[in-house]
Design a protein around this nucleic acid. Structure first.
Length: 342
DNA sequence: TACAACGGCCGC
DNA sequence: TGCGGCCGT
């Protein structure tokens, strides 16, 4: 059996790119008069003004909230009008009697085609992309490391660095310091390169598509995804190794991807674990007893910020036309998450 | 409170 | 392989 790389020394560079209120941005590009205005995209407007599926940040200031209409309704078009009378409501196109999201899917493809210039892309949803920048970051570190850059892209200096103390002094200067440290851990240097690359990519996306996005840069998909949502819109954040436990420890268990449902509830009720940090006290065997080998190991790992999931390289949201089936992306995933014990 | 969705993933 | 449960959008 080949020796597996311990996940605890994971030095990949993974970005999670999250488009900002994407459906709204797509409509605002089409109708520039909507830019800067409180705007929401609704589908099925016949019942109480339609369900909100995207809300601009201007509208959010008025308390307009996104709503998953087919799931415990909270706010619909009529209600949005009440709290924000000037809100612009745009309807999702309808084809064959159903909401047709294809214009948004196509707009997402524009973004992916730009991101894919720098690394392997996985479309996680209509408006979210994972990007594996390991190779690009290693190349940059070898050939053009941040510490030797003569001119630094201003955008990367707007990055957030999780755990960086910002009590006093010039924030931008502290970020510059962190990004350009020559004595940093090698893994942090790779993340710094990732931050530079992502900053440029986000500018390029803005230039070519007019869409803004937010991003998280970390050593695995789980952490990158957690981070990308922390500062929206139009911002990015890096998660250094040293900040991982501080991020996870107080995090409510239900906020973790895959733990928002019944499994998360069971962890709270059956194990009394309300934060990710609470999971640390349970042995792997104990978690496996409760939830099976795979899930138990997965839980033990994520509590420690370990996640071996690969960026899969799916550029298209659906697999139509290719009759080709391949054996097992699943097997790989299982091996990755168990490998630290071998 | 359901009402009007859909795709990916997983285990059986 | 197909189906149902689960999960997130």
């Amino acid at each position: 059996m080949p020796v597996a790389r311990p996940e605890t020394s994971d030095s990949r560079v993974i970005a999670h790119v999250d488009m900002d209120c994407f459906y709204v941005q797509v409509e605002q590009r089409q109708q520039p008069n909507l830019r800067g205005q409180p705007t929401a995209v609704v589908q099925y407007n016949s019942w109480k003004g339609g369900g909100l599926i995207a809300v601009s940040y201007e509208a959010r200031k008025f308390g307009v909230k996104r709503n998953i209409p087919w799931f415990s309704s909270s706010m619909r078009g009529d209600e949005a009008k009440q709290v924000c009378p000037q809100i612009q409501l745009v309807q999702v196109p309808v084809a064959r009697g159903k909401a047709d999201l294809s214009i948004y899917r196509d707009a997402g493809s524009e973004v992916v085609s730009i991101l894919a210039r720098k690394g392997r892309c996985e479309r996680a949803s209509i408006d979210e992309v994972y990007l594996d920048l390991t190779d690009a970051a290693q190349t940059m570190l070898a050939e053009n490391p941040p510490e030797s850059l003569e001119v630094t892209n201003e955008e990367v200096l707007k990055s957030h660095v999780l755990g960086l103390s910002l009590d006093a002094g010039d924030v931008k200067e502290k970020v510059r310091e962190w990004l350009h440290r020559s004595d940093a851990d090698q893994r942090d240097k790779l993340l710094a390169c990732g931050a530079h690359i992502v900053a440029k990519l986000r500018l390029q996306v803005l230039k070519e598509t007019e869409f803004s996005c937010s991003a998280g840069i970390a050593h695995n998909k789980m952490l990158a995804k957690l981070a990308s949502g922390m500062n929206k819109p139009a911002q990015q954040i890096v998660v250094p190794f040293s900040s991982v436990m501080g991020l996870l420890q107080p995090l409510p268990i239900k906020k973790m991807k895959q733990l928002g449902g019944k499994l998360g509830t069971s962890l709270q009720i059956d194990l009394g674990a309300n934060t990710v940090g609470d999971l640390l006290q349970f042995s792997e065997a104990k978690l496996q007893d409760h939830y099976g080998l795979n899930t138990g190991t997965w839980l033990w790992n994520i509590a420690r910020g370990i996640n071996g999931d690969e960026v899969e390289g799916r550029l298209l949201p659906k697999s139509h036309g290719s009759g080709k089936t391949f054996p097992g992306p699943r097997a790989l995933k299982t091996i990755a998450s168990v490998s630290i014990f071998s």
